[in-house]
Design a protein around this nucleic acid. Structure first.
Lengths: 122, 122
DNA sequence: GTAAACGTTGACGCCTGTGTCAAGGTCAAG
DNA sequence: CTTGACCTTGACACAGGCGTCAACGTTTAC
């Protein structure tokens, strides 16, 4: 299928699809006219990328999942590298949460000091 | 004092000081040679900005605090506008935390599915 | 044949605070 | 007078994923 159809079926803009390809996540055969020609499997592949981006992964972090799918696995997360990324991501998220909680406490403290009457649930 | 001294005393690069000025947060008289000439109070002012940036405020959000200090208040947070920003920031942070917690749960669920043996404290 | 729809690559913009380089003015010390 | 430290403005670069426009080739339908 051509890029327009893939875009429509995945709900992803053609711009994004080309961007993914540019970063080596997506590959396409080329017709004699230069048009990209995608396989059926690419629909799932793009969906995997989108799902991960949605969760907060960077494009680079989706690479192991894509590679995993390409190797024929039923799920992008079925490979060791993917699991590692999952675990790393969990650690990162936990760290971000800690930072935010610290910030929240800091802001709440400042607010309490500036405005003793202001209640802050915490 | 000149910009170099202010930079040294606040631990902020001259680049940043000029940037703050460019955005109307910092003002300086100019000597006959065109050099910026800062007042003693600007040290505290810059410190206030840095403290807020550190906590995660954007430069724009520090404006009410700066204005508040300029009006002669002992603290940048002593004004109604500043308190509003504090409260808005708290709400934003809480929202971000919620997003991160949701993401964490999502990632943990995916990980558990991909790797049943992997334990995830939650 | 021609217009419309779709494809191609390339490149700029965004957002935010800051690093960094350029090309030049100023001033104190030797 | 020269060196070097310090100042000035201006402008490019980054990170990340994508919108969007340009300029141009292809296919499709009439």
């Amino acid at each position: 299928m051509r890029i327009g159809e893939l875009a429509e079926r995945t709900g992803v803009s053609t711009r994004s699809l080309r961007y993914y390809e540019q970063h080596g996540l997506l590959r396409a055969r080329r017709g004699s006219n230069g048009y990209r020609d995608y396989a059926e499997d690419d629909v799932r592949l793009v969906s995997e990328i989108r799902a991960l981006l949605q969760i907060g992964f960077t494009l680079e972090e989706t690479r192991p999942f894509v590679d995993c799918l390409r190797r024929g696995n039923s799920t992008g997360g079925s490979c060791a590298e993917s699991v590692e990324v999952y675990e790393r991501k969990l650690t990162e998220i936990d760290q971000e949460i800690r930072v935010l909680l610290a910030r929240r406490a800091e802001v709440a403290a400042q607010l309490a000091q500036s405005c003793p009457g202001c209640f802050v649930r915490g």
